[in-house]
Design a protein around this nucleic acid. Structure first.
Lengths: 333, 333
DNA sequence: CTGAAAGCGCTAACAT
DNA sequence: ATGTTAGCGCTTTCAG
């Protein structure tokens, strides 16, 4: 029933060698006689031996663990991409023989639980998502913990981060509207307290500037990423400017709301108003049409973050990375 | 810079006691003199000491880790609820001083990585999501690892699991349609290879049976959870029976597709056809209307799973649990 | 190329 | 109520 767990010494005995030799084989030390290596590996296989992480950690100081931490001040952390990003992180880590420690918790630098589990010696590195409080990351970094932030932090210079190219995506989306012949282009921006919100708005502005169009600020309306706010914003926009012919909407959820309003008012999309969203959350139709939108490679975001911590753990100093986004042209623009 | 890490012995020295005493304080042993307890805690605080997990694990045999494993044979694991369920798991675990080890990986009982990291001694327990291959769980259980499955497994008797009440939710949704006066009620079922697909269909059937209605099987069409399949299914249904007046759709994604078709055909919802979905993925409008749907408590699903492994770890034998679902009545029915 | 021995930081009998 | 003494399973000098 309860097989006493197989240890390294068991292997050593069975092979008639010292534990040290087995350890060397385990760690790929090249100076063990090939015949022994083979024999030992055989026994390891046969006995289904797996080294004890804790013992190894204690001996080496390396834990093989990277914390994936979501700063959730909020009640519920809901993000459609979380499953995908998580996949990216977990896989990349496993490819390097490491594991992800998941931690959903409000990030408070006075919280002993946080600082306790995240301090060097407890994990080898950490990846932060949805960062609201960068103090924690600052302190952990000072303690010598390799840290990577997903999503551009406010103080971008102080951290190593990965992000999708929000700016470029918004720019290309807007340019697409322009190329289509739209001349009265508006935008529904997201929450500009977030860098993604700001960057998507900046990208929109940049595209117009490049086209030599001067932006009337009344063509910019702000939402809060929800479909309800998208409805309200679209109504506002239409009331201000009944003749707009193109809208760049900073995320697909708000686009749902906007499209519903357009539909209600009997406005043809894309005939009268062309619409481009951001995120590529919906493969199929939203209401009447399939949404043209900007896609980001979410799994790559996670995988890249993981690769970066690993680099950092190995002593390198990874540079922050911006991952490309691209336009998915469908029916609404 | 690299503060030599503070250890238990440091505390002991500073306090002029033996390491054993400090260990006792750490573990809440009641027979340490109150004065000392206070003094020692003070020093711990002052030095910012946090016990070394690895050392503790090695000494006790307990890791403080529960694996959260997603069986992803698929390329990308995308689930809108994953962020929420994850939150539930992580929080519940932390409340008991444990941490979640995240593992996204195809579950293969021949995979040494899987069996290696999941074997007893490496984690204290495991929670399985989206289980495709229950062999792994079987073996791990036999090895003595406390395991909990989220979502009813095919062989429900062999495992401890938590699930939302798919059957009951479908039943109440269908009954709602009936109470509204619908007499020609159809369903778009999901993938019946999954228990959730089967149970939602069974619930639908049960509601009709209870109402004394004999179900014509041509009113049942199958989709694969995607909005595209929802479109196809709705078209099929309408072609077969132009006069249906109510549809229960096994998830909201398919409902999006169905609603789009209804809209295209100029069929009034809920006037001509009432629609109920399942999942409550969309707070706002889907196309023209807000969807009436069945809600499950996703965070509770995660939290319950976590509580159950913890119980199991502590030696109890938790019973499987079905969490209630409830109807959210909005505009489409 | 291999073995011996010490030790990573903590806990858990066993004494006292 | 507290200290002593062994380890837990592995890695890593240091010898040889």
């Amino acid at each position: 029933m309860n097989h006493a767990r197989v240890t390294l010494s068991d292997i050593a005995q069975r092979a008639g060698v010292s534990p040290a030799t087995v350890s060397r084989v385990l760690n790929g030390d090249p100076r063990v006689a090939p015949a022994r290596v083979a024999r030992i590996n055989e026994i390891i296989e046969e006995l289904g031996y797996a080294p004890n992480r804790a013992a190894r950690t204690l001996a080496t100081g390396r834990t093989g663990l990277v914390a994936a931490v979501i700063d959730s001040n909020l009640n519920v952390f809901s993000d459609p991409f979380w499953g995908i990003i998580t996949t990216g992180v977990s896989r990349a880590l496993q490819d390097s023989g490491m594991q992800a420690l998941l931690m959903v918790r409000p990030l408070d630098d006075a919280d002993p639980q946080v600082m306790g589990t995240l301090a060097p010696g407890h994990v080898d590195g950490a990846i932060f998502f949805q960062l609201h409080n960068d103090n924690v990351v600052r302190q952990l970094q000072d303690l010598g913990l390799p840290c990577v932030v997903v999503g551009r932090p406010d103080d971008a210079a102080s951290f190593t981060y990965v992000d999708s190219d929000n700016f470029g995506g918004a720019e290309i989306a807007t340019t697409h509207l322009l190329k289509r012949g739209c001349t009265r282009v508006a935008t529904i921006a997201g929450d500009v307290r977030l860098s993604s919100g700001r960057l998507r708005l900046d990208g929109f502005r940049s595209a117009l500037a490049h086209a030599g169009i001067e932006l009337d600020e009344s063509f910019v309306v702000f939402g809060d990423w929800t479909d309800e706010s998208g409805e309200a914003a679209m109504n506002e926009l239409l009331n201000r400017h009944p003749d707009i012919d193109g809208v760049f909407i900073a995320n697909d959820a708000m686009a749902i709301g906007a499209l519903a309003v357009l539909d209600d008012r009997g406005i043809d999309v894309p005939g009268q108003v062309a619409v481009v969203g951001f995120d590529n959350m919906f493969a199929g139709r939203i209401g009447r049409k399939q949404l043209t939108t900007v896609q980001q490679d979410v799994e790559a975001l996670g995988a890249t973050a993981a690769s970066m911590v690993i680099e950092a753990i190995q002593g390198a100093v990874p540079k922050s990375v911006i991952l490309p986004t691209h336009l998915v042209v469908r029916e609404t623009a």
